[in-house]
Design a protein around this nucleic acid. Structure first.
Lengths: 264, 264
DNA sequence: GCAAAAGTGTTCTCTATACACCCATGG
DNA sequence: CCATGGGTGTATAGAGAACACTTTTGC
């Protein structure tokens, strides 16, 4: 028995134990080199990209399912994850080139030629709920599955061709992230534990895709009273060394509860 | 053949043509006598209340389904309607008293005793997407269906016992409405075409459940530049007569597009 | 000393908020 | 004239944006 058919058997059991017609798609944001990235999977055969997604087990909370998908792909456990929209257009599957769609359907047919149940299950109309997550890119270990070639971080500035309406889902997630930026102290999830104020600013600039004023940014962040200042870091550069900061978890949680009112 | 079994036959056809395991629930807000109301249905037998809901036809966009549900219940056509959250907890059905749940299941069994397909279809786990709508209460004509006793406006200050997690859905809708208040010129949907500034303020106070400052409220609203001032209205009361206002549709649409940043 | 980036200070404008004041109306 | 609510004005505090000034660092 090949590895593929093993996997296919496993999948059949998994699918038939999941709610039909419903899926989860995760827009996982990461940050590196002053750029915002999204974790995408590339499919075999048609080379199109898709969001990491999954299905909801029959005895599983939907939110739990989203956490599980995230864990499966990134290896990360408890991080920021939030539902943002449910996509239920009749023709959401048709929002890509017919050509790619056919290729992917052929791939499925080939993989599951002995399991008509799977084919039937997968070919139904699906409604999907989008979640977005923020992760520290260095702590992740992305894994493709047996239907995909690779699992890679893609810059939001150059998102490759995606299947179905995944492009639309990504855009909506970005919108939401930008709105939430004024209510969430976002850095904690996306940055390493210690960082400079410039790091934090670059992160905000990457998300908002616009320049922010340095001194005002600093004041605003410090005023939130969630950052702890540490010793300076000698960079070797011919200029003043910046302080390092980290988040005070307690104060961060407090702030999350009452909600902040930043705006950029 | 009784009216009930006619209706049941009709329903069977409708249900089997809908996506299984998925529903729509509408939190329809109305406004009257300085109070915010929600349209609720009271079930036969157990007397519990539920949100007006429905299912998504197999060839229907999810948003369209929500509009259809709204139309079925209120008779209203095109009004403000917005998806706010999808509820997918495994035990969302169990969030009410077991007793009521059993009574409702008995009612279903009685209604559909010759249609096991319907019973099976309805007894599955459901994931529901919540929409909230804003309507002018005077323009509506609420209609119960054959499973419910009545369709009535209930004050948000005294919401009766609801089935499943509908209470939670209502709370979430209220939260969303309060947040959106700072981005949407809400009055257009909830007030008659002409109204006084006090009417508008009372509406905001009903939604936010707190008193607002009169003079500042007036200035803030006028500054939005979406209101048209009309002739004064003599009320017969022993005081200065207030101006009447209405919304300028064009300016309102413009404002919707760019989004406003009110805060209360 | 000089360039470059960090950190702090200053100014201006706009908004939110509280409250004062005058106006219209009917008894 | 007076009570009541409508409409406008004003004073204060704080946030945001733009920009100036000082400090630190390596060359």
């Amino acid at each position: 028995m090949t590895q593929n058919s093993n996997a296919a058997l496993f999948l059949e059991k998994k699918l038939l134990g999941s709610l039909p017609g419903l899926s989860i798609d995760c827009v996982i944001f990461g940050y590196k080199n002053h750029e915002l990235f999204i974790l995408l999977l590339q499919w075999k055969h048609d080379n199109m990209w898709s969001l990491p997604g999954g299905f909801i087990h029959k005895d599983e909370d939907m939110d739990k399912a989203a956490y599980r998908v995230l864990k499966e792909r990134t290896g990360l456990d408890s991080i920021f994850l939030s539902q943002f929209h449910t996509f239920g257009n009749r023709d959401r599957i048709g929002k890509e080139h017919e050509n790619s769609l056919k290729k992917r359907q052929l791939l499925l047919k080939e993989l599951y030629k002995n399991q008509p149940k799977i084919i039937e299950w997968l070919n139904k109309r699906f409604i999907t709920t989008g979640y977005f997550a923020l992760v520290d890119i260095n702590q992740t270990n992305p894994k493709p599955d047996f239907m995909t070639i690779q699992c890679a971080w893609q810059s939001i500035k150059s998102i490759p061709s995606t299947i179905m309406d995944h492009r639309e889902i990504i855009e909506k997630a970005l919108q939401q992230l930008r709105i939430q930026l004024n209510y969430l102290p976002v850095g904690l999830s996306l940055l390493p534990t210690k960082f400079t104020m410039q790091d934090l600013q670059k992160l905000y600039e990457a998300i908002l895709q616009k320049k922010l004023e340095r001194s005002n940014f600093q004041r605003k962040m410090l005023k939130l009273d969630v950052l702890v200042r540490h010793e300076k870091q000698m960079t070797g550069a011919a200029n003043k060394a910046p302080y390092l900061y980290s988040f005070n978890q307690e104060k961060y949680d407090l702030l999350l509860k009452k909600g902040i009112g930043l705006s950029f």
